[in-house]
């Protein structure tokens, strides 16, 4: 049975649902003791980022912050390989070297997730220079959190982008918190779009509970960026759960959480689709069910996948075919081994 219409809003609903199912499985991976560490930052509540990823084209590139699973799924990631990376396995996107906070995939334009707040932002400036100079028509998008609004490098990057007319977009996923600090405790003036405007960027803020509103804003910003007029998009969302897996958010009230979680982009999109007859409840249930099955498989794959061999530790510090770091055991053997000083 095929879906009655495969409209773009329905496709965005499906992607958002897949993101949420994926993130729920990441939580399970951790509870099963199968994740590589506990530094897992779930993007539940921020799925409307799909409005931005859907406005990008094949060939466009991007960087993300540490809460980037949703962004990458929005750009076409294979959830099984992502989950395997989060479990620190050999067939993960980065061979088990990077983990949740450092997923990248050149083929899909993912120039890297970053665990340094703001660390990936200037890379789009360089990408923008590449695309401008080659007239390639590509754009590059930096995804980051509201916390990065406090990093100086963001403003250095915005200025360069505007000054050099680069095809780039700065996309702030404002989930209202940087760890335990709500934005009103980190910014003297919370009019973030005004900061972007001050540098000469096109700026917009969109309701993070409304993926179509995000998409509308993103489409026009992307069109302008492709034309050498860089932009800033803020997605006004809410971080549904703790900062990382161990954080129970004691610094905010249950009432605030209830209110925040009511701003659910998936529930909103579902209601809208049902209202407009774009899909029946049964269609939407099937999409949800398919997403759950897909992500169960990704989880099972990650758990069953092989860990990397110890020798891979020394690979990829430098390019293949160039001198690699010398393992310690080899160095010690050269000093103490039989005949070493004969």
């Amino acid at each position: 049975m095929t879906l009655p219409t495969n409209s773009a809003p329905l496709a965005r609903y499906r992607t958002m649902r897949r993101i949420r199912s994926f993130e729920e499985r990441v939580g399970e991976l951790f509870l099963k003791g199968e994740s590589a560490g506990s530094m897992l930052h779930l993007s539940i509540g921020e799925e409307a980022v799909v409005g931005m990823t859907d406005a990008m084209q094949p060939g466009d590139t991007f960087t993300t912050h540490h809460r980037g699973h949703g962004v990458f799924l929005g750009r076409g990631a294979d959830p099984a390989r992502m989950m395997a990376e989060i479990a620190g396995k050999e067939d993960g996107y980065c061979r088990g070297k990077g983990g949740s906070m450092h997923i990248a995939d050149r083929a899909l334009g993912h120039l890297g997730a970053n665990a340094i707040v703001g660390g990936g932002i200037p890379h789009i400036v360089g990408a923008g220079i590449s695309y401008r100079n080659t007239r390639s028509g590509q754009i590059s998008v930096a995804f980051f959190g509201d916390g990065a609004m406090s990093q100086g490098i963001l403003y250095e990057s915005m200025n360069m982008a505007a000054l050099w007319h680069l095809p780039v977009i700065f996309c702030c996923i404002n989930n209202q918190y940087g760890m335990g600090t709500r934005v009103d405790r980190s910014a003297g003036n919370r009019d973030f779009p005004a900061r972007a405007t001050a540098f000469g960027l096109n700026a917009a803020r969109a309701d993070g509970a409304d993926v179509e509103a995000v998409h509308d804003a993103a489409r026009s910003l992307a069109a302008a960026a492709r034309d050498g007029r860089p932009g800033y998009l803020e997605i006004d969302a809410y971080r549904f759960f703790g900062h990382a897996r161990m954080d129970k958010s004691p610094y905010r009230t249950p009432e605030e959480e209830v209110e925040g979680r009511a701003r659910d982009p998936i529930a909103r999109a579902r209601a809208r689709l049902a209202e407009t007859d774009a899909a029946t409840a049964a269609d939407l249930d099937r999409i949800d069910g398919d997403a759950a099955v897909e992500m169960d498989l990704a989880l099972a794959h990650a758990i069953g996948a092989k860990p990397p061999a110890l020798s891979t530790m020394f690979e990829d510090v430098y390019a293949p075919g160039t001198p690699a770091p010398r393992p310690q055991a080899e160095r010690l053997a050269a000093i103490l081994g039989e005949g070493a000083r004969a």
Binding site: G88, K89, M313, V317, Q328, L336
Partner: peptide
């Protein structure tokens, strides 16, 4: 003798991390 971390960035895999 010097005994220290291997001359590599720290890998996320718990297995590799411990061995490094």
């Amino acid at each position: 003798l010097r005994v220290g971390g291997e001359d590599i960035p720290i890998p996320v895999s718990p297995l590799l991390e411990r061995a490094s």
